[in-house]
Design a protein around this nucleic acid. Structure first.
Length: 1014
RNA sequence: GGGCAGGUGGUGGAAUGGUAUACACGUCAGUCUUAGGAACUGAUGCCGCAAGGCGUGUGGGUUCGACUCCCACCCUGCCCACCA
């Protein structure tokens, strides 16, 4: 038996795939799409890390399965190639960043191809390619034109060692996320993106996305929406003319989430940066003390300011008091750095009895406390105060709020404040605008020019002029020195030829922007580019803007499209229906509401009502039956699975015979003219339209030719844009660390692009999952400095790509961190060797040989049963990302095949199909060895047959008081009564009973009997 | 301090409220081999000669039956952290 020569065989198939474009995704297929996405890597000098392939293999496995299930799969790859390391390397060596980047990309690509990843390399993108960043710049221009990009002087986070301004998201515990170095605040003119304008939608739309819960929670917390009130506290002492003289116009405004505790506000606190301090300097009696404190606080870095949090400090503003509008008491105002300048109004009303921070501060400075929320109402056990009580309760000592529970008190006080004109309901966010400038060379140039002359004339104001779109791409100039000036200016600022330019508006002399974009820019829209990587028109497709459809959100757009399609279908008398329960998921739930003006959507109980709406609307509806949707007409019967974790089963289930897949089945039915179904969630509008085009010739009758022609014009334009087919991404896997950065940023950009009609959906990713990190032995992170990095090349050289892939999937639960353990590779290696041996022994078996039993003679029924159980297990496990148990099921299967007296070629083929997503090279080789032609990639995924998987015998477990005492082999369909009788007759049970009658006997059918003895 | 995830053999880890430890590593024994290795077969939670007992971080609870559900606590990891 020839040993498995993985070097030769893996190379052979990699070449085959490349030559036959096996993983190329077609933009025109009449097939449902599946768009799998993994985060494209930054091509670092270190080459591929073993962590990268964990995510890549996972989605490759999923995509391979989807292909076999009949989906048109897109799994692309590209390079997020702008970034600091290449630039730092350039500073050190003088090599142009583009040179080293190109070299690194080549290494990454070679490594990925050696792993047998089924990427569509024809769609490779590179963010540093000017034909790519042309569109990054285009997006920036659109953001600017919509008022979402603006220049502002802001205290930004400046990393001293990287010499770069950082976004808030990039500062970790007051230190630079990248280098860990200290970060200080610097005032600098920066480009900012108004992501805060999308805060509500970024939170609200999470609701209908299929993201893993931790991602949703982190994004919600990061955006940090809190609802409360803005309240004005009058400053009765202030009578300065510039404040109007009338003391009721002078006030200190605060934001609070607990307006109900306002009767307990005994003092106020403002941040050291609060403008009141300078404005009212003349009224402050202890100016020196206040000034000293403010200066000291401002000098602290974020790190110090939060680190020193243990002991709160502050100074009272003597000479100014605020009046609590509810108690009419005058209360002191303090300056303290525990109040943040950028959140809310930079000032708070302090309620020491009900806020732990205020409590700590009040205790230290002996300020009064007043309890106004009582948890034990009406029994007055409250006045003992060991700590702030922050929970809910009933109001006491609060005048007209007395006796009200917290939630009602909140509503009542806000209403009162609004009535009196001293406050209003207010929503606050933690999220800040995105600092978008970097004073760096190796990034996308910001396509803006500053013109003094146009300062006042321009519609944009302040003199910043956008370049015209036909001036894009604005390419990076060649430079000699990559160092950042100590002033913090970008290297581009030192090139006069770059800086000096002309104004696109007036043609006069102007200055070019010298900052570049952060490396988050290119990755914020790359998933769109994969749909049409070489399209020179790309975002300029404007079919949505032309139609009468005035989209303001995704659902209305889809609805409009759907109506359009429906009209066409009915004009041709083609019955049209939508699989209802498929629409109940995610995106489509909202769509449903728009279609029927249902305000509340209730799953299940509302079902019949919804069906009525649809029937009235001319849809032909199926019934839901045991979770499967059944349609009957003319004696023909179709079942459609509602959206389940096993969505793919829909396609396998619908297969007619071994070869057919869903879309072919659909065509067949449609040609017979009685039915056409759209499981909406998995089939895009593009798919529907392709069907329409296909069908309209077969149904020549039209009611309104002109309307048909007009609609078709729109629909053809719609079809011509591949974005409409591929978006949104069906399944996106990546690291948790990108949750509040990349994922949030790209959702923001995609929403913006959607709003201007450039992207077809308001959300970029339907589903987001995350993998655990791969750690070095000992549970440490792998790092160059620790010398514990495992290089994928070494593993592939020693064991082959299939072993590497399967091991990464086998090493532990996919969503949890896993330690790299070379011993584990051996187990996987043995497993594949075993499969190879079995495969070779079947060589020459007849391809359709269901009688051939080349490994001896005997009962093949047991193996078939196990195989069908394995089909089910592997199918489910891949879908739920339980790859480790899927592989363990395959191992059990191979162990049994080895022991079995006979294995047929048919049986082994099923096994190979299940194995192929994990070990594609070996599967291909054995597939052809066994006599199959072509690639296993396009073989149909095996169909689980419950009948064949059914066990005939079971081991009936017999318990006494819940403890196992006996096991007896019994037929699987043993009746409850027989099981009971068998159990009681068992010798062991008789012994435990010792002549007594059992108190109870519990029988779990087909499993166990529990005899209860008291 | 808050949120989330997790705690099971010597190790990585399996278990719709129903046989705890599947699968794999390691270890031990055997077969084959000049030898080493590989491969194959079998054994392998702990205590006990056995009958049996004890076992899923700790302590309670619900249940005929709990790794699984509920309550309290301890520990580990990740994320956030003076956000009013």
């Amino acid at each position: 038996m020839p040993a498995y020569d993985f070097k030769k065989i893996e190379k052979k198939w990699q070449q085959y795939w490349e030559k036959h474009k096996t993983y190329g995704a077609s933009n025109d297929a009449i097939k449902p799409k599946f768009y799998g996405l993994v985060e494209f890597p930054y091509p670092s000098g270190e080459g591929l890390h073993v962590g990268h392939p964990r995510s890549y293999t996972a989605l490759d496995v999923i995509c391979r399965k989807k292909r076999m299930e009949g989906f048109n799969v897109l799994l692309p790859m590209g390079w997020d190639a702008f970034g600091l390391p290449a630039e730092q390397y350039a500073v050190k060596t003088g090599t142009h960043p583009a040179v080293i980047t190109k070299k690194n990309i080549a290494t990454f690509k070679r490594q990925l191809q050696a792993l047998g990843m089924g990427f569509d390399w024809s769609r490779e993108v590179d963010t540093t390619d000017s034909e790519y960043y042309r569109w990054t710049q285009w997006i920036f221009l659109q953001l600017f034109k919509q008022g979402l990009a603006y220049k502002a002087t802001a205290a930004i986070n400046w990393c001293l060692s990287c010499k770069i301004g950082l976004a808030n998201e990039e500062v970790v515990n007051g230190a630079c996320e990248r280098c860990g170095g200290p970060v200080e605040k610097r005032d600098k003119e920066q480009w900012m993106l108004r992501i805060t304008q999308y805060a509500d939608r970024l939170i609200d739309d999470l609701h209908y996305l299929d993201y893993i819960e931790p991602v949703k929670v982190q994004q919600r917390n990061w955006i940090g929406r809190s609802e409360g009130a803005r309240i004005k506290f009058p400053l009765p002492d202030i009578t300065e003319p510039e404040f109007g003289g009338d003391h009721f116009q002078n006030f200190l405004e605060v934001f609070t989430t607990r307006p109900d505790t306002i009767f307990g506000a005994t003092y106020m606190v403002i941040a050291p940066e609060h403008p009141l301090i300078t404005k009212l300097a003349s009224s402050i009696k202890n100016k020196v003390a206040v000034k000293n404190y403010v200066e000291k606080a401002r000098g602290k870095s974020d790190l110090e300011r939060t680190d020193l949090a243990k002991e709160k400090t502050g100074v009272e503003l003597k000479g100014i008091r605020a009046r609590n509008p509810l108690t009419d008491e005058d209360i002191p105002i303090w300056v303290a750095d525990y109040v943040l300048p950028h959140y809310g109004t930079g000032a708070i009303m302090a309620v020491p009895a009900h806020d732990s921070r205020d409590y700590a501060f009040a205790k230290k400075y002996k300020l009064p406390m007043k309890i106004v929320t009582c948890p034990h109402y009406p029994s007055p056990t409250c006045p003992v105060l060991k700590d702030a009580y922050e929970g809910d309760g009933h109001n006491i000592e609060s005048d007209f709020l007395n006796g009200l529970p917290t939630s009602e008190a909140k509503q009542k006080i806000i209403a009162w404040l609004e009535e009196q004109g001293v406050g209003s309901r207010e929503v606050q966010y933690k999220l800040r605008d995105w600092v978008f400038s970097r004073q760096r060379y190796w990034g996308e140039p910001i396509p803006m020019v500053h013109c003094e002359k146009c300062k006042d004339k321009s519609k944009y104001g302040d003199g910043w002029m956008p370049l015209p779109e036909d001036a894009l791409p604005l390419k990076l100039p060649e430079i000699k020195k990559y160092e950042v000036a100590d002033t913090g200016e970008s290297p581009l600022s030192k090139i006069p030829a770059w800086v000096k330019t002309t104004c696109p508006e007036c043609g006069g002399a102007a200055k070019r922007e010298t900052d570049t974009m952060p490396n988050w820019a290119g990755s914020s829209w790359y998933f769109l580019r994969y749909a049409a990587p070489h399209d020179t028109k790309f975002f300029s497709h404007t079919e949505w803007q032309k139609e009468e459809i005035q989209p303001d959100d995704l659902d209305k757009r889809l609805f409009a499209l759907l109506k359009c399609i429906k009209t066409l279908f009915s004009a041709h008398d083609i019955p049209f229906w939508i699989a209802g329960s498929l629409m109940m998921n995610g995106l489509n739930r909202k769509l449903w509401r728009h279609m029927h003006d249902i305000d509340m959507f209730v799953r299940g109980s509302d079902w019949e009502r919804i069906l009525e709406f649809l029937r009235a609307d001319g849809f032909i509806i199926h019934e839901e039956h045991n979770g499967w949707n059944r349609v009957e007409k003319d004696g023909c019967q179709v079942e459609i699975c509602p959206a389940t974790p096993l969505e793919g089963e829909l396609y396998t289930h619908l297969r007619h015979g071994q070869e057919q897949v869903l879309h072919r089945y659909d065509l067949e039915l449609a040609e017979r003219g009685w039915l056409w179904g759209v499981p909406f969630r998995t089939i895009s509008p593009t798919y529907m339209l392709r069907f329409y085009r296909f069908l309209r010739d077969k149904f020549p009758k039209t009611r309104d030719k002109e309307a048909d022609r007009q609609k078709m014009e729109f629909l053809e334009a719609y079809l011509a844009n591949p974005l409409n087919y591929w978006m949104p991404v069906t399944w996106y896997n990546g690291g948790m660390e990108h949750t509040t950065l990349h994922v949030l940023y790209s959702r923001f950009w995609n929403k913006f692009l959607f709003d201007i009609g450039a992207a077809p959906t308001s959300e970029p990713y339907e589903k987001r999952t995350s993998h655990g990190m791969i750690l070095a032995k000992g549970g440490e992170k792998m790092s160059k400095s620790k010398g514990n990095v495992v290089n994928p090349d070494d593993i592939v050289a020693a064991h082959g790509a299939d072993v590497f892939r399967a091991y990464e999937m086998f090493m532990g639960p996919f969503d949890q961190a896993a330690e790299w353990n070379p011993r584990g590779l051996i187990g996987v290696s043995r497993f594949l060797q075993k499969v190879w041996g079995i495969g070779l022994s079947l060589r020459g078996a007849t391809p359709r040989g269901d009688e051939a039993i080349p490994r001896g003679k005997g009962d093949v029924r047991n193996l078939t049963r196990l195989l069908h159980q394995t089909i089910r297990k592997v199918t489910e496990d891949i879908e739920s990302m339980h790859f480790n148990t899927a592989i363990s099921a395959l191992m059990q299967c191979s162990n049994e095949m080895q022991k079995a007296e006979g294995v047929t070629a048919e049986q082994f083929k099923i096994f190979l199909q299940l194995l192929s997503p994990f070990a594609p090279h070996m599967a291909e080789e054995l597939w052809s060895t066994i006599g199959e032609k072509g690639s296993i990639t396009h073989a149909a995924w095996p169909v689980f047959d419950p009948e064949l998987a059914r066990e005939e015998k079971i081991e009936l477990v017999i318990q006494v008081n819940g403890k196992v005492r006996d096991k007896i082999m019994m037929p699987a369909d043993i009746s409850v009564e027989d099981a009971r009788r068998t159990a009681l007759a068992s010798e062991k049970v008789q012994k435990w009973l010792a002549g007594k009658e059992p108190a109870d006997v519990i029988v779990v059918q087909g499993r166990l009997v529990n005899v209860v003895i008291t």
